[in-house]
């Protein structure tokens, strides 16, 4: 468990709802849920979730901190926005789900090998290098994330797809060597750094 997690447990001891309000993006909306269940009923992937949104909101109010931050339910959200469109109380449910996912990751409570979480990290790292996504490298990182042997297997399985993409000029094999970046890469990187500093600052304040 991270230091930050310990600090947060210490600070909000018995009130997880307040912790969520303070630290999770759009978390101040959680208290406004009226438990109608329309979000859960609207979610196309709902049956694959351990806890649909309505239940997550209830768990937050019931102080079930470990269960909420430890579940991979919010990582299952595909941002289809059905729940937001339908919520009679106007809760930004999709954003709350992302907010919870980010918070749990930041505290180091996200399940290991959670595919969405893994992909998100790979995507982020890829993006940070050149300020734009290098699709070839992103694909390769995904193939090889579980080791070299598995990576070769994955690559062979998608061989035909890759060839066709190259033929159709949809993928440039030269991108493997460095790849091109945004015009002002250092500007981009310092912008992101600043944003991260602000966020960290907010959390520190919360500490």
């Amino acid at each position: 468990m991270s230091d930050l997690n310990t600090a947060m447990i210490e600070k909000y001891r018995s009130n997880f709802l307040k912790e969520v309000e303070a630290n999770v993006e759009e978390g101040e909306w959680v208290k406004m849920c009226m438990q109608c269940g329309v979000c859960s009923g609207s979610c196309p992937l709902g049956k694959h979730w351990d806890h649909p949104p309505q239940e997550i909101f209830m768990m937050i109010r019931a102080n079930k901190r470990d269960e909420v931050l430890g579940t991979d339910s919010m990582w299952m959200c595909t941002s289809c926005y059905n729940c937001i469109a339908r919520c009679p109380r106007g809760l930004p449910i999709t954003h709350i789900m992302h907010g919870l996912a980010v918070y749990s990751k930041r505290l180091g409570l996200t399940q290991k090998k959670q595919p969405t979480a893994e992909f998100s990290q790979i995507f982020w790292d890829n993006l940070m290098k050149k300020g734009r996504v290098n699709e070839l490298k992103l694909g390769l990182s995904m193939y090889f994330k579980d080791g070299f042997g598995q990576g070769v297997k994955n690559a062979m399985a998608n061989q035909k797809l890759g060839q066709n993409m190259m033929k159709a000029k949809r993928m440039n094999p030269m991108e493997f060597f460095g790849g091109h970046s945004v015009k002002d890469l250092s500007g981009f990187q310092s912008m992101v750094k600043k944003a991260q500093e602000i966020e960290e600052g907010n959390l520190k304040e919360a500490k």
Binding site: K31, M32, M34, Q35
Partner: peptide
């Protein structure tokens, strides 16, 4: 009531 942090539990 919800804004005022009254907890509504079903």
């Amino acid at each position: 009531g919800q804004q005022a942090m009254v907890t509504f539990s079903k």
